[in-house]
């Protein structure tokens, strides 16, 4: 799905077709010759990345590899020093932005109730008041958060906040869903529930780009893998092949649980 130049668009749920047809497509999300350097250090150096079609791409790599930065770049939140990002063949624009869902490594919840968080996102995307309320309730129910719908979102537990952030992103019915470590604080049951939700989304036509350090999780959910190290995509391809025979020493070390590339003083690893 992530091979160069692949621009296929997979089938989408029938019910959503009319709704989506009226809107500009965000797929394929394409980054070309993306470079970002800070303080003389190359943080991101990606020649080409095409995110298209559907299914689950898992982005792996050690802390500080540039995973979050790459996602933020593709989502048009960070302007690269050089290179171009296109959405559906065009310059990124606001009309397409809502078609690209993004759950950040640290979820940002508004100072409103859980339900109002989802409703507000839907309203911002142009969904009518009545439909927004309905879809917010459906999204909460699907995330098993209905009993907390009136709670101030920021009073929810860390895991509940993550589930709410994901439910909010899903409620927008994105074509493309970027998830930056969405299950790190969750209990096993919630992890399983979220994985099931995301896999279902991937099967029904959404393209999911999922960041994780957990190779067991990656094996469970990935259709293909991107492996990043030091700002570069070192490996890309089918998940099974990657896990059976990683092509680079860095990936082998990462999967074996070793420290990848001793971090020298000039690239201290840090969480975004």
């Amino acid at each position: 799905m992530l091979d160069r130049g692949n621009t296929s668009v997979a089938g989408r749920p029938i019910a959503d077709l009319a709704f989506e047809e009226a809107r500009p497509e965000v797929r394929p999300v394409v980054g070309q010759n993306i470079r970002i350097a800070r303080d003389g250090r190359l943080l991101l150096d990606v020649d080409e990345l095409v995110v298209s079609g559907s299914g689950m791409t898992v982005l792996m790599g050690p802390n500080g590899a540039g995973k979050s930065l790459l996602l933020r770049c593709l989502a048009n939140l960070v302007a690269p020093d050089s290179g171009t990002i296109t959405w559906g063949g065009c310059q990124p624009d606001r009309a397409r932005a809502a078609r690209l869902g993004f759950v950040f490594q640290r979820p940002v919840l508004l100072r409103r109730s859980a339900r109002a968080n989802i409703r507000h996102a839907l309203r911002a995307a142009g969904v009518s008041r009545g439909e927004a309320a309905e879809r917010a309730d459906q999204a909460l129910a699907a995330a098993r958060l209905s009993h907390l719908s009136r709670m101030p979102a920021r009073r929810l537990s860390g895991g509940e906040q993550q589930r709410l952030a994901l439910a909010r992103a899903m409620a927008l019915r994105p074509e493309c869903l970027f998830l930056d470590e969405p299950t790190v604080n969750l209990d096993p049951a919630s992890v399983a529930a979220i994985e099931a939700t995301i896999i279902a989304a991937g099967r029904s036509g959404t393209k999911v780009l999922f960041v994780t350090h957990d190779s067991a999780q990656a094996r469970r959910i990935a259709t293909d893998i991107l492996f990043m190290h030091d700002g570069q995509i070192l490996e890309r391809g089918e998940a099974a092949r990657f896990f059976d025979a990683p092509g680079t020493a860095a990936a082998r070390a990462f999967l074996a649980g070793d420290l990848v590339g001793e971090p020298g003083p000039e690239h201290r690893v840090r969480t975004a």
């Binding site: 939140l77 932005a97 508004l110 507000h120």
Partner: peptide
Amino acid sequence: LEYEDQLRVFGMGPRGMVSTLIWD
């Protein structure tokens, strides 16, 4: 500072951002 990226992901323009921020 905290909200901007999230609001941009929602496709909000300056007007939507102002009203969201004022309310929050």
